[in-house]
Design a protein around this nucleic acid. Structure first.
Lengths: 228, 228
DNA sequence: ATAATCTAACTAACTGGTTACTTAAGTTGT
DNA sequence: ACAACTTAAGTAACCAGTTAGTTAGATTAT
């Protein structure tokens, strides 16, 4: 009767990958909003439009679902950012490209910073083997690459003599903090929606300006947008 | 009948303030480590060396206890920081004094940043009247005072033309991020304990250097410690 | 072709452990 | 007498995870 379009194995309701993806997407939202302890599997299932038992059909337990979320978040970031760091660019341009890419990634995935932060909080109270994996797989390579760029720029005289071990975290703080912390306060203090494109562009320019001033030896020509 | 040897386990302990304070201190630890959803009232009572019913004797419920914690955290910060901001100092010295004071406050209360962050996360998913109070009472005055200093410094030509609305959050990000996020990663990546006095001094110098470079128009004489 | 059978995908309803919070009756120091 | 506690038992809600199925398309046998 029915010409089967795809080779995919179907269930009673349709594309299984679609269901899995819906669950993951809902889990990202829920974990971002409520944190790992506050997230409710019932809420995830409801948001995904799926029975709760299906969560356990696709994922061993809440923890496994959380880890899938974590991998999606970090995987996306490193894919984006490493591509930029692999380009052949002079140190200044490369750092600005990296900062811009990192900013753009979190700006278009504003749910991710709270998730990352949640994971860091978890690591505070006892490092799991899971967290060691994340550090090895995602943090360390990123850190190493950026540290290289910093050393290059210092060698050419473009960058001030900063300690990468402290400078890199400060830089990331400036990039990410807006999304993980500033937004709600700003919304309440100014009435402005901080996630609207115009504000995001403003913030982006401000971040690039801040980091340029903190790192470059001499004032530097404008990067791309006008600084503010 | 029974000569009570110890300072007594049962009944009145004399100073009620002491019990209340013990509960609050334990609550700070628990909320910092586990977040608001993850915190367990049983754990707080046990850590305070007090029966769980006593929590409810002093605090209406978990939420009220949490709010008491929040007020302690923010109250302490503003007390410390406003004192510095009220001093008669030239803009550069005042900003550096503020950053130093803010840093010192969180460095000697490393449990506070996670609590603040938890509160901000909570505000993300729907602003409570409680959070509005916090913004009005703590955030807005602090923001206003720092913005004044920035304007002063810009008027004297000491500071670059930055937008306070973006610069202030970035500055706070650099101050706080180490405690709320970097520490666990650093411990795992380098094996170094990030909270040891030597590292803290290093971090402090680095933060002052970073912010000075980002804000001051010309390189500036060294603030107090040597920059790194 | 058709019926029988298989299997992945999915659901409604439940289970049992956990957790915030309460109650009531008593103890102790001032 | 009164405020500051302790003890112990309990309740109701909540919530992660399970169970025992149902459904629909795919495969196989006839």
């Amino acid at each position: 009767m029915r010409a089967v379009a795809s080779k995919s194995r179907m269930g009673s309701r349709g594309r299984p990958e679609q269901s899995r993806a819906a669950i993951l997407r809902a889990a990202v939202r829920e974990f971002a909003r409520e944190g790992i302890a506050g997230a409710r599997t019932d809420a995830i299932a409801r948001a995904a439009g799926v029975n709760k038992a299906l969560l356990y059909y696709y994922f061993k337990d809440k923890e496994a679902l959380y880890e899938a979320v974590i991998d999606q978040v970090f995987g996306g970031l490193t894919a984006n950012v490493h591509e930029v760091l692999a380009r052949r660019l002079p140190p200044r341009a490369k750092i600005l490209a990296y900062v811009g890419a990192h900013f753009d990634y979190v700006a278009s995935n504003p749910l991710y910073p709270p998730i990352v932060h949640g994971e860091l909080m978890r690591a505070r109270r006892g490092s799991t083997p899971q967290f060691e994996r994340i550090v090895k797989q995602y943090f360390r390579p990123l850190f190493t690459k950026i540290a290289e760029v910093l050393r290059d720029g210092q060698a050419t005289g473009d960058f001030r003599q900063v300690d990468p071990m402290h400078f890199i975290p400060s830089m990331i703080a400036v990039i990410v903090f807006y999304f993980s912390s500033v937004a709600p306060v700003m919304r309440l203090m100014t009435g402005i929606n901080p996630m609207v494109p115009e504000r995001l562009a403003q913030r982006r320019a401000s971040v690039l300006d801040f980091i340029s001033a903190a790192l470059f030896t001499h004032p530097a020509q404008q990067p791309e947008g006008e600084p503010k």
